[in-house]
Write a protein that binds this DNA or RNA. Structure first.
Length: 290
DNA sequence: GTACTTGTTGAACG
DNA sequence: TCGTTCAACAAGTA
């Protein structure tokens, strides 16, 4: 099967949905089913979050931030994490990596932690491979906790000048690997790095320093264009679930190269190529991309 | 049974 | 000291 790991559009979709449901709710209980998920003792964590009201749900890079005021809960879904809101066992909203035949009752065997909220709601953190994590920090320490994350591609700081500047620090790198480095630009994972390069008509094996100014401008334009389009379609990760209003995420149908090895290019009909680059599957059209 | 999948971390390297 | 590279992590699916 094709993996649909949460990247920026998927995390943004989850955050937007959770914001509508969770703001104003109070955390009543916390349940930990896998110690490794929490970088803190359950007792300490519970003491610090119990009774706190959720003021907002935010995103930084691919990280989800539940804002409790002075305390912030940071959640990273990594490859297979999900955040699901349930009410009386009913699946209301949220998302992440679709799990085949996942039991729809909550918590289930993939649940690693969950929060009991007021109004009978619960927030479940499910994670098949146990890569994801939940942390708790003081709000004043946020910049320290996010020090390794670079430029947000959908912020006003994402300008051609700033983008060129961060790329100029890695002139010898392959452009795809530079796009995946979260210390430079955040939010692009393996799927959208391939998609962005296709949209910009640039091969993943081009060296950063060899890109012409026109190619840099195409790449700069392609990044928010691809990400916004994916967000409009609620990301790629949502093929397996329906949210409260019955909407499905369906960007997977719009993917141009990722997971389409040997299938005809949607532009020129030639087969999509695949190779391993830095240990990651890399897909491109050898004719459309130069 | 084996290969394949990936975001971040931390170790190894130069 | 610093930047860069790469294996490790985990477990379901093909």
């Amino acid at each position: 099967m094709t993996n649909h790991v949460p990247e920026l559009p998927e995390v943004q979709t989850i955050v937007s949905d959770l914001n509508k449901i969770l703001v104003g709710r109070t955390i009543k209980t916390f349940h930990l089913l896998n110690q490794k998920t929490l970088g803190l003792s359950k007792v300490v964590f519970t003491r610090r979050v119990r009774g706190k009201k959720i003021l907002a749900v935010k995103r930084r890079a691919k990280m989800i931030i539940i804002d409790l005021g002075e305390e912030l809960i940071l959640i990273h879904l990594k490859m297979t994490g999900q955040l699901i809101v349930g009410a009386a066992g009913r699946w209301l909203a949220g998302g992440g990596h679709p799990i085949a035949n996942e039991p729809k009752e909550l918590p289930n065997k993939f649940s690693r932690a969950w929060f009991g909220l007021d109004h009978g709601l619960s927030l479940f953190f499910n994670d098949v491979r146990k890569f994801g994590w939940i942390k708790l920090i003081k709000a004043k320490n946020l910049s320290e906790a996010t020090a390794n994350f670079g430029l947000e591609p959908l912020s006003k700081e994402f300008t051609l000048e700033n983008f060129s500047k961060l790329l100029s620090r890695k002139k010898k790198s392959f452009i795809k690997q530079a796009l995946l480095d979260q210390k430079g630009l955040v939010g692009l994972g393996n799927i959208y790095a391939d998609e962005v390069l296709f949209a910009a008509k640039i091969k993943p094996l081009r060296r950063v320093g060899d890109l012409r100014p026109a190619e840099m401008r195409r790449l700069f334009a392609a990044i928010p264009q691809v990400l916004k389009s994916a967000i409009r379609h609620r990301g790629t990760s949502f093929s397996d679930y329906l949210d409260a209003s019955g909407k499905q995420g369906n960007y997977s149908r719009l993917l141009k190269v990722y997971g389409r090895t040997n299938q005809p290019c949607r532009v020129c009909s030639r087969p999509i190529a695949k190779m391993k680059l830095g240990g990651r599957g890399t897909h491109w059209c050898d004719f459309c991309q130069k």
